[in-house]
Computed example of a mutant assay.
Amino acid sequence: MPSPRRIAIVLFNLGGPDAPAAVKPFLFNLFNDRNIIGLPQPMRWLVAKLISTRRAPVAAHVYAQMGGRSPILPNTQAQAAALHAALADTGEVRCFIAMRYWHPFTEDVARAVKDWEPTEIVLLPLYPQFSTTTTASSQRAWDETARKIGLGAPRRLICCYPDEPGFVAALADITRQALAACAGEAPGAEPAIIFSAHGLPKKIVDAGDPYVAQVEASVGAVARELGLASAQYRIAYQSRVGPLEWVGPATDATILAAARARRPIVVVPVAFVSEHSETLVELDIEYGKLAKANGAPAYVRAPTVSTHPAFVAGLARLVRAALNNEGAIQPGCTRAACTGHSQCALTRVGL
């Protein structure tokens, strides 16, 4: 008699400090990741130590504005609970959360998954657009840990879903609501719609990372859903750090230009699926002040898709497709071709 099907779904996310004392070690873990800084050890360790020491006071101020901790873990827990409910008809399912740079760490979660003894594992990044700095990093950490602890259950990775219909529907809905709120604050004015994503150093994109192309695919799908012409919106990138050239245009510069033109502004986070410092502080507080100080008659920031029913339903569809091996041409990948590319992103970046 075959063993009952036990499905472990592992949600990958970035993580965030859960107390003021966690800010510096969180930053160190981030910059000590070879997918973020490609130097060999011990140089990477030294650079990570230097950057985390220098940036810790600034970051601590940011997190102080959110009560001293990141909300990303409770937000992700809510998403896991909603996904579990959406998969109630799939069999015995348990959702786990593996954060990349703070608790719960990948190794601890992998051991918990092994103890649960699943028959199969689905790795689900909460990064709709693939990047070597996010999904690839989380996948590498998981696979290295799984080998080390002897976690042998077959696993599939959902590498990306930039134009998944549920994700697009959720983004379109929150954009529509933000536009309505903006119209209430500045009736009759044509708003500047800015889709904002986390930036990347340009050299990473030039090396073949498909992230920017997939952000563009996400925004294009939302624009078609809403009937927006290309002149009605911009894609911009936020959170630049360091001296390297980053992809652009920058979100703050785009907001500044719209504010000086006296246009109301709607900002939509397109690559973040849960609230954290870059939405609650950078977009809401810092860029909100920038917009108002420079003449914007309204500034509205759409919420992240979070537990929007359409987004959760889309995640559930992705999990079911992975379990049914639909389009799985790469080991662990559930997309036959990543949007805008002739090959799966995992193959394209050499993973």
Rank of each mutant, 00 (worst) to 15 (best):
R69K: 13
S70L: 08
S70G: 04
P71V: 07
I72Q: 10
N75E: 15
T76C: 11
A81R: 15
A86P: 06
L87H: 06
L87G: 09
A88Q: 15
D89A: 15
T90L: 15
T90S: 13
G91P: 08
R94A: 01
F96V: 06
A98D: 12
A98I: 10
R100W: 04
Y101E: 10
Y101W: 13
F105K: 04
V109K: 02
V109Y: 02
E120P: 03
I121A: 03
P125S: 10
L126M: 13
L126F: 09
S131K: 01
T132Y: 00
T132D: 01
T133K: 09
T134C: 07
S137M: 05
S138L: 01
S138W: 06
Q139H: 08
Q139G: 00
D143F: 05
T145Q: 13
A146H: 04
R147K: 14
R147W: 00
K148S: 13
I149R: 12
L151W: 07
L151E: 07
G152D: 14
A153E: 09
P154N: 02
P154C: 06
P154F: 07
P154W: 01
R155M: 01
R156W: 02
L157I: 05
L157P: 07
L157K: 04
I158T: 05
C159S: 15
Y161E: 07
D163L: 00
P165I: 06
G166V: 11
F167G: 02
V168D: 11
V168M: 08
A169Q: 14
A170Q: 12
A170E: 10
A170M: 12
A172Y: 05
Q177F: 01
A178Y: 07
A178E: 03
L179M: 15
A181G: 02
A181W: 00
A181Q: 15
C182M: 08
A183G: 14
G184W: 07
I193L: 15
I193Y: 08
I194V: 14
A197V: 12
A197N: 10
L200F: 10
K203C: 07
K203M: 10
V205N: 08
D206R: 14
D206L: 13
D206T: 05
D206N: 13
D209C: 03
D209R: 02
